[in-house]
Amino acid sequence: MGVGDWLRSWPVYRQLTGADPLGRGSAAQSARSRSLVPRTASADRVVHSVCPYCAVGCAQNVYVKDEQVVQIEGNPDSPISRGRLCPKGSASKQLVTGPQRVQKVLYRAPYGTQWQELDLPTAMDMVAERVLDARRKGWQDRDEHGNTLRRTMGLASLGGATLDNEENFLIKKLFTALGAIQIENQARI
């Protein structure tokens, strides 16, 4: 690299001699930074979502390539957050792609002494079967006077204060739809 090449590669020289006197554009770019492309440019599609952390409800654009999340950014069309995310929301990609994400469920059979790993679909099927079984066993269609009840005494829910309002609202709707009447939240107790 000669002196002339070195001088032309120097940002201050490009700033003083080029079309970018304030040094905010091409004068400040190196050859490497000119070749960079955003992670979002290669995405196959954009999925709209909501940040899972708090009850504010900041909208997110989730960029997906080959069915893998490549980037999560704030959605500028959101009237709530206008494209901004807090540090936790900005790092929410780690929830999906981080190496610490649990991919298996630990299960210990009744009276068992050892844990066994189950894949998530198997565990979800087991939970669904047990919920429906408890609902069926505790179902009350009518009381002793013939009044319609349509409820189950086999299910109850106690929500925690770590859940946000939306999660507790959805849990309330789910358990009400299942026919449960014992639905409570720690924040209300």
Rank of each mutant, 00 (worst) to 15 (best):
G2N: 14
D20F: 08
L106I: 01
R188A: 05
S35C: 06
L149W: 11
Y53M: 07
V50W: 10
T152S: 04
K104M: 09
R14E: 06
V64N: 03
C51M: 03
G159P: 03
R136A: 03
V47Y: 10
D5G: 04
D77P: 00
Q182T: 03
M124Y: 07
L158Y: 14
I189V: 08
L158Q: 08
R32I: 09
R130V: 01
P11Y: 12
G83S: 03
W6N: 05
I181L: 04
S49K: 05
L170R: 15
S92K: 08
V105K: 10
R45P: 01
L174C: 09
P87A: 06
I183R: 06
P99H: 12
Q182P: 00
L85Y: 05
G112Y: 13
N61M: 13
N75L: 06
L16I: 10
V102Y: 11
R108L: 07
R151V: 04
P121T: 06
A161P: 05
R14T: 01
L36I: 12
G2W: 11
E167T: 08
Y111M: 08
L163R: 07
T176A: 04
L163Q: 13
W139N: 02
F175S: 00
W10F: 13
R101F: 06
M153D: 09
K88E: 04
D143W: 13
Q186W: 12
H145A: 06
V105L: 09
R188L: 04
S78C: 07
D5S: 05
N61G: 00
I183Y: 06
L118N: 03
L36C: 02
R82A: 02
G2D: 14
Q182H: 13
R151S: 01
C51N: 04
Q60S: 00
G159I: 09
G4D: 13
P87Y: 07
V127P: 03
T152M: 03
G160E: 11
V102L: 14
D119W: 12
Q114A: 05
Q94C: 00
C54N: 12
T113Q: 15
S78K: 07
Y107K: 09
Y63E: 03
C86P: 02
Q114D: 11
L16M: 13
K172C: 02
Q68E: 13
M1D: 05
V50A: 05
Y107C: 01
V3D: 05
E67G: 01
Q182A: 08
R8Q: 13
T176W: 14
L16K: 14
T40M: 09
P121Q: 13
V47T: 08
